[in-house]
Design a protein around this nucleic acid. Structure first.
Length: 261
DNA sequence: AGAGTTGTTCAAGC
DNA sequence: AGCTTGAACAACTC
């Protein structure tokens, strides 16, 4: 689940459910974090997404920092809610809904200083206001690492995951092995605006959609993608090649996506 | 049953 | 210093 747009969708939804009158309850039988117990009874003041990180703000300068990692997920229940399954770490209880945070890699209490540190250590999140793309281009254009690796480096730019990486590079006809320092300014600009376009569509639809039309069936979600997990290129019909980038699978059309040199 | 997966961090080494 | 690799962690699907 957890690509950047999903987290922003969650923050938007959770804000409506929790802010103002809500309290936070640790899961009674799950492997809940002891720290989350401290939040019990606290009023939720706000929810923000930064890249793939979720930050819930509570009274008394307490924040709940959540990162879902690869396997984590979130479920929203209407009341009466069933008992949390045993992988629930924390249940956030609003007046009408309970939100279960399931199997996150990070679930901990922060003070404001730690939230600020988190925000400063991750790269610009293209879905937030007042971000500076120049900061991202500077990092990329100085690096000999590949654009495929850099796009998923959350300290360079935050929010892009494995599927968006493949789809965005294909849409811009850039080969993932292209060294960052060889990316031209205009290539970067097109990349940046396509990222914003696609992530915003993702937030709106709560699904990864990089094609023109959207199929609204979760089971058929692959039909909303161009090259990820595909075998032939929708543009030129060539074979799609699978490559490994830092242990994650990426898909490339060798005839559409070229190296600059 | 077991492989596969929309992720990150850390340490160690080049 | 920048970059890479490997391991550890997490839960669920088909």
């Amino acid at each position: 689940m957890p690509e950047g747009h999903t987290i922003h969708s969650a923050a938007r939804r959770h804000r409506r459910i929790l802010v103002g009158y809500s309290i936070c309850v640790s899961s009674p039988q799950g492997r809940f974090s002891k720290e989350a117990l401290k939040l019990n009874g606290n009023i939720c003041m706000g929810v923000e997404a930064y890249g793939k990180h979720l930050v819930y703000e509570f009274c008394n300068n307490e924040f709940l920092h959540v990162h879902l990692g690869l396997f984590g997920s979130i479920r929203v229940h209407e009341y009466p809610a069933s008992d949390p399954r045993d992988t629930v770490r924390v249940r956030l209880a609003g007046n009408y809904h309970a939100i279960d945070i399931i199997g996150p890699t990070i679930c901990e209490i922060y003070k404001k200083v730690e939230v600020e540190h988190l925000i400063s250590r991750i790269g610009p999140d293209p879905l937030r206001d007042n971000v500076d793309p120049e900061q991202v281009f500077t990092r990329i254009s100085k690096s000999r690492s590949s654009i495929g690796k850099l796009l998923m480096d959350q300290s360079v730019i935050s929010g892009i995951g494995n599927i968006y990486r493949t789809e965005i590079l294909w849409r811009q006809s850039i080969h993932p092995h292209t060294p960052g320092r060889e990316l031209t300014r205009s290539q970067f600009q097109r990349l940046w605006y396509d990222i914003i376009l696609l992530l915003n569509i993702g937030v709106k639809r709560n699904a990864i959609v990089t094609t023109e039309d959207q199929v609204n069936d979760y089971k058929k979600s692959k039909e909303n993608l161009n090259v990820f997990a595909k075998s032939s290129c929708p543009r030129c019909d060539s074979d799609i090649v699978q490559i490994d980038i830092n242990g994650r699978r990426a898909y490339v059309c060798d005839s559409c996506q070229t190296l600059n040199s």
